[in-house]
Computed example of a mutant assay.
Amino acid sequence: MKHELNKPLTFEGKEYKDINVPLESLTGDDIVVAEREFVATGNAAGVAETSKAFQAYVAARAAKVPVELILSLGAKDFTAITLQVQNFLLMQD
């Protein structure tokens, strides 16, 4: 999934106008690593798949970018991407 940003974002000196988040390329290992990173930062969720923070880690893993980039997105872009991740994780269209 390629997401066109509502407003370009400059992160670590690079400008992003879009972010490619190929969720279908993720493996089980990617999800487990994202969960470990999520928990290691002190986060917790009853159902991780419904947590915006966990979804950010999964999106970052898919996009091969630091989670801080995903967290730096504007609210509309962040919500759109994390909603796509949630739908993917919960197998909803």
Rank of each mutant, 00 (worst) to 15 (best):
M1Y: 04
E4Q: 15
L5M: 09
N6C: 07
K7S: 14
K7G: 01
K7F: 07
P8M: 02
P8D: 05
T10K: 12
E12D: 08
E15I: 14
D18V: 04
I19W: 10
N20T: 08
N20S: 10
P22A: 07
T27F: 14
G28I: 04
D29F: 00
D30S: 09
I31Q: 00
V32G: 00
V33M: 05
A34I: 00
E37D: 14
V39E: 08
V39I: 14
A40R: 05
T41D: 08
T41N: 13
A45D: 07
A45E: 12
A48T: 06
E49R: 02
S51W: 07
S51K: 06
K52Y: 12
K52M: 14
F54H: 09
Y57C: 05
Y57W: 13
Y57M: 05
Y57E: 11
V58M: 03
A59T: 01
R61H: 07
A63N: 13
V65N: 12
P66C: 10
P66W: 11
V67A: 14
E68Y: 05
E68L: 10
I70S: 08
I70A: 13
L71N: 15
L73F: 06
A75I: 15
D77H: 12
T79F: 09
V85D: 04
V85N: 02
Q86L: 08
N87T: 11
L89W: 02
L89G: 14
L89Y: 03
L90H: 05
Q92H: 11
